[in-house]
Design a protein around this nucleic acid. Structure first.
Lengths: 337, 337
DNA sequence: AGCGTTGCCGGTAACGTTATCGGAAATTAT
DNA sequence: ATAATTTCCGATAACGTTACCGGCAACGCT
């Protein structure tokens, strides 16, 4: 707050020019060893810290990555951890902004970071976001952009995401193998790509196995576990009661589990249950819930790596799509054979 | 990446000076309406964004808060959300850096942010941090600092934290009221203040009720649920088996629950269980786990408010300590009367 | 002795913005 | 018509840093 020590302070104190101080600090070859020593000693004593703002202004780069995410739930926090780890290693600073699943806040965040605070973006869009002008604006300004997890299809950028369809396939195939016939799905919000892809895998697999999805067995609801609980209660009360439920998040799986227990049904006997994300919690409840691991930490790391690659490879963004394969972890909630 | 539109571009295009453009954009009174209109039109067209770096350099303030946290678990993520909400509202940008519970990374993060990137700090120290020179350095430079959650005692700064002792008291009193006599505690890492305070409340309450804490009933272990599971198994196998367990986090409570069930004991009959944090998950497992709510979101908001107050009140930091009262939520796992 | 070379350092401009001052032109008052 | 005021705008410096250029010594070479 007061006044940071600057290169000028050192220069005046030693009665030399700022240029020389600057060179001395960077260990340039054309500075006398003696001078260097004096500069370094004083800089240590005054606890000099270079002013990154001045540097960034000069070089037109901040070495900062703007990360925009919809929230900080388990999966995204894990991904951010992955991004952070790789970015820090490579000398980047990360600026995380949550949009809180709000389109408006996503725009505000983008705008702020665009004020020359970052030299690139890593974005996962909010579930509310249906218009992508703010994302396109980033690209119009030729600012590097990487999309991850909740990607946007009609934007050309490197994308790192889970193979969500495959996740849906693995979960559904497993349930069918276990002999379940009437498999319901608790899908997420309607316009959410990841949710729809998981459902696509579910539908594909049903079809491939000659099963038909009852329309009443496809429920769109928010990620919230409360909604999942309510939705499951309705499902279980319906005429055509499902004998298995696939939820596209673990939160929802736990909500579903609660409703199932309340109804007095047993897992995996009466009803099979498979969740998504493989959060630590699923193996700690009873019965332990089968879940699709999405390797969030790996996705985070891959995302940061793609970003770094894009920054170094001046040769235009490659727009590759990295697709991580999920893996179903089978537990008690769905294993009846 | 290419080149952002600057005030200069607009000035040249309209054949006026940069000063005039600057004033026009800020709606200064001494600019002709006509000129203003022209400037604004062109600035919109070119999608001009002011360069915050230049501004920050000039004003010696960034309007950015550096938030340093040990990790992004449920509690801290919630607190960050609270900070974020208040800070955004007040026009601040937040830079979140995780130290990943590492002393080294905490120092690196502090150092980076000190390079004039932020004009104040909000810090929760890592569990590994025992030396606080890096924190003191912040204060030596007269840079505003607020501590929250995992605070540091011998540093004078505004502090916002939970009344951890009271949390321990509430949990323990409740267990005693329910008739439990041999109450064990799964405490966190030894040098972690919040963990010790919760234990202090536990010890106080035992003493006040004429109970003695068996040394074997006080277990220090990492926050990790796996450790809690192992530790509980040992507890249950010991000669002097406890009839209740108080864990200082919900993660640990769930680990404990798992061990209890495995042993074939029932809650709340054979064993009472109380956790800490009141994470959503505790009400979704069976039995639902009693837990101490710590109002993480409120703590986050109060922290940001304290920061803002400190920034505005030029009259020295007040160094007040805001202490949030926790509240025990009683659920099945410990209610046997 | 004169020349080129090397070692070391200082001055200047630039990054994008705004505060401050000063001044020309236009308007009003006398 | 002249003075006084207002309206509007431009030039400059500054924030902290480094790249670039240039220059003065001192040294070595012929």
């Amino acid at each position: 707050m007061e006044k940071q020590t600057t290169i000028k302070d050192i220069a005046i104190a030693l009665n030399i020019s700022t240029s020389t101080v600057s060179r001395a600090l960077r260990d340039a070859p054309d500075v006398k060893a003696e001078t260097k020593a004096a500069v370094k000693a004083l800089s240590d004593k005054l606890d000099y810290q270079p002013n990154r703002l001045a540097l960034s202004l000069l070089n037109r780069q901040t070495n900062t990555i703007g990360v925009i995410i919809p929230n900080l739930d388990y999966v995204l926090a894990t991904m951010v951890k992955g991004i952070d780890e790789v970015a820090l290693e490579a000398g980047y600073t990360v600026m995380v902004c949550q949009s809180d699943e709000s389109y408006g806040r996503e725009i505000v965040n983008t705008k702020r970071l665009l004020e020359s605070l970052v030299d690139g973006f890593i974005v996962s869009v909010s579930s509310e976001t249906k218009i992508f002008e703010h994302i396109k604006k980033i690209q119009d300004k030729k600012i590097p952009l990487v999309l991850f997890d909740r990607i946007v299809n009609n934007i050309a950028a490197p994308k790192i995401r889970l193979d969500n369809i495959d996740g849906g396939v693995q979960a559904t195939e497993h349930l069918i193998e276990q002999g379940y016939k009437k498999i319901a799905i608790l899908a997420g919000p309607e316009n959410l790509n990841i949710s729809n892809k998981r459902m696509e895998g579910y539908l594909q697999t049903l079809k491939a196995n000659g099963l038909r999805a009852d329309k009443g067995h496809i429920i769109h609801c928010d990620f919230n576990q409360q909604y999942a609980y309510e939705a499951t209660k309705e499902l279980l009360a319906s005429k055509n009661r499902p004998d298995a439920i696939f939820t596209i998040s673990d939160r929802m799986a736990i909500g579903a589990m609660l409703a199932i227990k309340e109804k007095g049904l047993s897992m995996p006997h009466d009803i099979g249950l498979v969740g998504f994300n493989n959060e630590p919690i699923v193996s700690l409840v009873t019965p332990a819930i089968s879940s699709v691991e999405m390797y969030a930490f790996e996705i985070g790391k891959a995302t940061a790596r793609a970003y770094i690659e894009m920054m170094s490879g001046a040769a235009g963004m490659s727009n590759q799509e990295i697709i991580i394969k999920p893996k179903l972890f089978i537990r008690t909630s769905s294993k009846r054979r």
